[in-house]
Design a protein around this nucleic acid. Structure first.
Length: 288
DNA sequence: AACTCGTGGCC
DNA sequence: TGGCCAAGAGT
């Protein structure tokens, strides 16, 4: 019986989806942009936005040369718009500190705005081919089931990195494939709700299957309700500014009929604090 | 460690 | 129909 890493690689070679960032010579900047967009946003929604973004800003320096307002506008409805601002800041940092070249070193990547444990290693591994554990929500679920015999992973923890590292082969190229394959398996077979265990390439090695698929509980935190939330109000304010021709609107004309005026004002204030909007002379606008 | 932060599709 | 879920990061 082949080990988990070997089975994953073999399966991945036959079953990997054809995604833009897996094309030959896609480039580190494209990888970095794709990873920003993929933070909590589904693949199918990301693809068209990614292609438009890279056509407009083919290098970090191109993005850094424009105002952050342009990044926030181009981000459109991808969600979590702070990512657009952070991606713009990261582009400025890459231009100023790395001569416009996306860094390869994980610590350098971690020092960039908006890049954490996942994105830093994803860039180092998928763009540069280095050997690091890449752990996302898919990988954590695969490890929880196949290795730990649980039905769902616990909340994210630092120990996840060491667990993934233990699964990686020594060979550098093979280790990158195992990282990609674990994510792909979690995304398409070992899914959160209805896993397709009958087609799983590592079923024979899966601890959860061996244990009889027990329900071991779910320690993940539940998402807060969106309807009526501050997030919803912030989204409405920002959409108003994105949709305005000049990306500038009198404050009194921003979602004036919002049911909760105090919540609306709180949303505006927090967007200013975040740097997603600017308040100048009674007007609100995207950041210049 | 727990909480916040968008948006839309799916079953 | 409405929770659940989605290649997380910063505080």
């Amino acid at each position: 019986m082949p080990d988990i890493a070997t089975a994953l690689i073999e399966w991945y070679r036959e079953n990997a989806r054809d995604l833009p960032w897996r094309r030959d010579g896609f480039g580190a900047w494209g990888t970095l942009v794709s990873e920003f967009m993929l933070q909590q946003t589904p693949v199918t929604r990301v693809i068209p936005h990614l292609e438009a973004w890279l056509e407009r800003w083919p290098t970090p320096a191109d993005l850094a040369a424009d105002a952050p307002a342009e990044a926030v506008q181009q981000w459109a409805n991808l969600g979590y718009p702070r990512r657009a601002l952070w991606l713009h800041r990261a582009a400025v940092e890459i231009r100023d500190r790395h001569d416009g070249v996306v860094p390869r070193d994980v610590d350098d990547l971690l020092a960039l705005t908006g890049i954490g444990d996942y994105t830093a290693r994803a860039v180092a591994v998928f763009a540069y081919g280095d050997r690091h554990p890449v752990v996302d929500t898919n990988t954590r679920r695969v490890i929880a089931r196949a290795v730990e015999g649980r039905s769902q992973p616990g909340p994210p923890a630092k120990a996840d990195l060491a667990r993934m590292d233990a699964l990686l082969p020594r060979d550098i190229a093979a280790s990158a494939l195992v990282n990609a394959a674990a994510m792909e398996l979690g995304a398409t077979v070992c899914t959160a709700r209805t896993p397709r265990c009958e087609t799983c390439p590592i079923a024979s090695a899966c601890a959860w299957r061996t244990a009889g698929y027990p329900d071991t509980g779910d320690e993940r935190r539940r998402q807060a309700p969106y309807e009526g939330s501050d997030r919803q109000a912030r989204g409405a304010v920002l959409k108003t500014l994105r949709d305005a021709a000049t990306h500038e609107v009198a404050q009194a004309e921003v979602i004036p009929t919002w049911p909760d005026a105090r919540q609306r004002d709180r949303a505006i204030d927090s967007l200013v604090v975040d740097g997603l909007i600017e308040a100048v002379g009674g007007m609100l606008r995207l950041p210049r």
